[in-house]
Design a protein around this nucleic acid. Structure first.
Lengths: 295, 295
DNA sequence: CGCGGCATTGAAAGGGTTCAATTAGAGTGG
DNA sequence: CCACTCTAATTGAACCCTTTCAATGCCGCG
């Protein structure tokens, strides 16, 4: 996917001089950028050879964000929607006592700052975990784009929907009880959406500190460390600081499956009598069939 | 908002005979249903008197779901998008060992089954916590509607964006460490989006069991019970089974604020040198300004 | 009246947190 | 180039909270 995995050598320059930089480290010159954005947003590859005739020629900005730099600030108004092109981010909230609560991790293809779409304030700050690039879409232009291009509207809807699913996955991870189960789920989750499907599978580079992981998983960072060593001793992974290698995927999945076990039995119907008495659902139709207009 | 808070007296009938039922318990006859849907989706009230001239007269289905009935099934394909009109739902996943992992709570205005928008399978089952009604939007018709009505497209975008924000809030709740802090956040969260802004404020009717709450919060149900009694003894709440009364909002907020405290100090810049050396961000523009087409 | 689910409460055990000390790595400056 | 420093990461030990197991009221329903 993103071929700039090793973009370390490239230099970061002031805005004016970067304009032609992407050509150097990517096979996607400027004309592809909008297509690329749509590809990131929608899983449907816009049918390959499609030229997207309805796509207007609106300006499309790419933003480069340095590691540890903040892209969004909690509580600020939100004029922009961002789509991660490369790199990764963490979403966090800084509490009164100064504790940094990490709430999410964003990777290529994910949407940042969706509050822009309904005019809310940013719910959390977003900080780059490594040098990264994002597409920046001003809310106003976005509306204009959507009005002119059905393909874009569709892609945006796809993107939002997928982002919703991804966001819900965090709850999945946190629902594990044991610390090693949480960590296992987190690793599997990262591995599943890591931007290197080919190359060295089962290899993973964490971009965040133990503290960040701990915060996201709701654990003490010492516990995360201990869980890592536990998973190492079990032969599930090999861990060298932030470099992870998955040795036994099955075992790791097994650990992740660890649940608050067998508390709830099949749980028979609560109100079988009422259930039998009336149907579970019923439908009412509005609209076209009934053309009568009420007073 | 939803004026059918006390819809208990109304009888539930088979589909055919329900067609005219809504007129009985609501001031919104059929012509308002689409407006009502838009109001639920977007926070913008579609500028009050606006007649939405671009809204086509497509069929719009209202579904009535009985308490404990499943609206969606985990793993099933997803042809429909639902918008909660009244009542509430829980989203859950049934694990191999039979444990019911509750992952979300949906209340009026929330979207259910957004997987329909990107063709994914349902990630969790959705069960009504009480008698409820939803708008049902087939994915195909939804696309058609969007293509014909900018207002609808806009509203849908709003709805999705807000749903995204709401989903992220679950992580907020779970990020609390102490059990009573989690419960406090949950109560506050429910109270904030309870469908009775007027009437008896600070009053709250839980529609779910302790077990469900415990599952969502990642606690044992006994712990939830204990936390409830703790909050009672502290004078924060009065608890009678599933009827909650908030006595001391301030104290409750205080409890909710309880965090894994003061571990992280201000955390000075990590690489002040590098930070100074190059700008945090830089922008590249694509599109209209540059009309040259690359080879 | 007894059964089943829900909710509460008690007591013991386990796992995670906390405090504290140590090691390792990266960047700095002599 | 190496010592110095700061931070990240690991490990150890004691405490505490949550879990778990168990028993008891409570209510609706057969």
């Amino acid at each position: 996917m993103t071929t700039d995995a090793k973009h370390a050598p490239t230099f970061w320059m002031p805005a004016e001089s970067v304009v032609d930089a992407p050509a150097a480290d990517s096979e996607a010159p400027r004309t592809d950028s909008l297509q690329d954005l749509l590809r990131l947003l929608g899983s449907t590859p816009v049918s390959a050879g499609d030229d997207l005739p309805d796509l207007p020629d609106l300006p499309l900005a790419t933003l480069r964000v340095r590691a540890d730099a903040a892209l969004l600030h909690e509580g600020a108004p939100s004029p922009m929607l961002y789509v991660v092109q490369s790199g990764s981010f963490k979403g966090l909230r800084t509490l009164e006592d100064g504790y940094e609560q990490v709430l999410s991790i964003a990777q290529p293809g994910e949407l940042l700052g969706c509050e822009a779409l309904h005019g809310g304030l940013r719910r959390c700050s977003v900080v780059a975990l490594e040098d990264a690039t994002v597409y920046a879409l001003p809310a106003a232009e976005l509306r204009a784009l959507a009005r002119r291009s059905p393909a874009f509207t569709e892609a945006l809807r796809h993107g939002l929907s997928r982002q919703l699913a991804r966001t819900a996955e965090v709850a999945d991870i946190l629902s594990a009880v044991a610390s090693d189960a949480r960590l296992s789920r987190f690793i599997l989750w990262l591995a599943a959406r890591a931007p290197l499907p080919c190359g060295a599978p089962s290899r993973l580079q964490l971009r965040m500190s133990r503290r960040d992981i701990a915060s996201l998983l709701g654990l003490a960072h010492e516990t995360v460390s201990r869980s890592f060593t536990l998973l190492s001793e079990e032969g599930c992974l090999r861990v060298h600081n932030r470099d992870i290698e998955i040795l036994d995927l099955q075992a790791l999945r097994e650990r992740a499956r660890n649940t608050r076990g067998s508390l709830a039995e099949p749980t028979a119907q609560r109100n079988p009598a009422r259930a039998a008495a009336r149907p579970a659902m019923s439908v009412t139709w509005w609209g076209s069939p009934v053309s009568a207009v009420a007073a």
